[in-house]
């Protein structure tokens, strides 16, 4: 286990407010997950047929992209803790580009569905599919804007071991976006 001085005592990374937001957002998604599962019981056959039109390759690759993005952010926070100022912007840029890649992949996926005549109005499964992934995508877009701002700040040397509350708060949010997708992906694409 890590024994670096920064983590020797128990502490919450970032500001507490971001954790309150994260918990509230996770509970909001939790409720959506449960309503999806309830509706799945009522319309089992329809949900299973509709699920087969989704391509798990997209979901799986998007999971790998978000996990990698999160990992870059972990390394960026670690670089700030160690005052490796030149490394921080590179890692934040890499994390942001992963977020963009997720968005592009999602756009291709949505495009394919819409081209096949599938919309949120097609049936309840697609309503859940488009709204759950859509709300999540808004989180990813917001995160990309945040990472771009962080990248610019890091280039100006604004983050270091004594100034990292903002970076840590943003990192906490970005990991939550990753975490929600980890449940969202199997729920929509893989349950059979």
């Amino acid at each position: 286990m890590s024994t670096s001085p920064a983590v020797a005592t128990r502490r919450l990374p970032g500001v507490e407010g971001v954790w309150v937001f994260v918990l509230a957002d996770m509970c909001f998604f939790g409720v959506l997950f449960v309503s999806f599962m309830q509706e799945r019981i009522k319309q089992g056959a329809l949900f299973e047929t509709a699920r087969h039109t989704l391509n798990p390759d997209f979901g799986g690759i998007n999971t790998l992209i978000l996990l990698t993005s999160s990992w870059f952010v972990v390394l960026a926070v670690d670089a700030a803790k160690r005052d490796r100022l030149a490394t921080i912007p590179k890692l934040l840029l890499a994390a942001m580009l992963c977020g963009i890649a997720f968005g592009i992949s999602k756009a291709i996926e949505y495009g394919g569905k819409l081209a096949a005549g599938i919309t949120p109005m097609s049936n309840d499964f697609y309503m859940f599919y488009f709204s759950l992934t859509g709300i999540h995508l808004l989180h990813v877009i917001g995160g990309c804007v945040m990472l771009t701002v962080f990248w610019l700040k890091a280039r100006r040397g604004e983050f270091d071991s004594r100034n990292m509350k903002v970076l840590e708060s943003g990192a906490t949010y970005w990991h939550m976006v990753d975490l929600l997708w980890i449940f969202l992906f199997p729920l929509l694409y893989l349950l059979r």
Binding site: M1, V7, R10, R11, L12, P13, S70, W71, V73, V74, A171, T172, H175, M176, D178, L179, I182, F183, F185, P186, L190, L191
Partner: peptide, 23 residues
């Protein structure tokens, strides 16, 4: 698949979000 997702989420919470060192 559900169990693996839960384990993954817990690892993100404890290691990436540093909850293993949190109050």
């Amino acid at each position: 698949i559900i169990l693996i997702a839960a384990i993954k989420v817990r690892l993100v919470l404890l290691h990436f979000m540093e909850l293993r060192h949190a109050p």
